[in-house]
């Protein structure tokens, strides 16, 4: 035994090392912002008992079963258990029956409320809307982002990409300059993520609350000293479409935790 055996073990190890190195260079360079956070925040997201976003998911599960005055219908009355929403968040924004524009998941929930439940529209960013969005998106946790192959979406995705590359604001910055060109470097001590919308709605420590991608985009625009788009502006949907297309295949984490 030995020389030969030892030689082959060594050869095997060398091969493994070579293959591992190769796998690292071939590994997809796209990564969720989860990997840019410190271990304590990752642990907070991973543990459902510690993840503050789970409070919204729980509240959303209650709202899912709640009947509303006019139509006396709950979400569950039409859709059944909320688990039936599995995979939905992974393919939004999308066209929906009766809309000539793509809508975000939040907008889709509000369409259901006004059309089917004959209830009032939930206010943008309201606790109820965030809770319902969170419980629906949570059903797609660990599923890959999978935008629909709908040719009608293409011009909206292209518009979103143009906005992503537009330099704007007094600081004359584009999204791409930070999140493509400088991802991984530090802005004011915080690692710049690649801006993949994997965790929305997210619990953001800076907000001490759960919030939408739209809210996050507004934060960036304010930081660039650019005029935020109006609350109902199509630009937010276009940007979300582009970012979801760009993040295709990455797994959803809702509710994500971010700094």
């Amino acid at each position: 035994m030995s020389g030969l055996r030892r030689g082959s073990v060594c050869l095997g190890l060398c091969l493994v090392a070579a293959l591992t190195a190769n796998a690292q260079t071939d590994a997809p360079s796209r990564r969720s912002g989860y990997h840019d956070m410190g271990k304590p925040l990752q642990a907070m997201q991973d543990d459902d008992m510690a993840n503050p976003g789970m409070l919204w998911v729980g509240e959303g599960a209650n709202l899912w079963n709640q009947r509303f005055a006019a139509a006396d219908k709950s979400c569950a009355d039409c859709h059944g258990a909320v688990q039936s929403m599995s995979g939905v968040a992974a393919r939004y924004p999308a066209f929906t029956a009766g809309s000539d524009q793509p809508v975000t998941l939040e907008q889709r929930i509000n369409l259901c409320r006004t059309q089917n439940q004959r209830a009032d529209r939930l206010a943008d960013g309201s606790r109820e809307l965030m809770a319902l969005t969170a419980v629906v998106a949570h059903q797609s946790r660990n599923q890959p982002i999978a935008p629909p192959d709908d040719p009608r979406l293409r011009p909206f995705i292209a518009a979103g990409e143009a906005l992503y590359r537009l330099r704007q604001g007094q600081l004359n910055l584009s999204c791409a300059q930070c999140h493509d060109d400088n991802a991984g470097r530090k802005l004011a001590g915080v690692t710049i993520p690649q801006a993949h919308p994997t965790g929305y709605p997210i619990y953001r420590l800076e907000w001490q609350s759960l919030g939408s991608l739209k809210r996050r985009l507004r934060n960036c625009l304010v930081g660039m000293r650019a005029e935020p788009y109006a609350p109902d502006a199509p630009e937010y949907v276009q940007l979300e479409l582009f970012l979801m297309d760009r993040a295709r295949g990455l797994k959803l984490e809702t509710p994500g935790v971010r700094p």
Partner: peptide, 18 residues
């Protein structure tokens, strides 16, 4: 990526306050 610290023209969508 360096912002223009002393220029106001050629900028897009600057916030009202600035």
């Amino acid at each position: 990526i360096m912002p223009p610290y002393y220029r106001t023209d050629g900028l897009e969508r600057v916030a009202k306050g600035f």
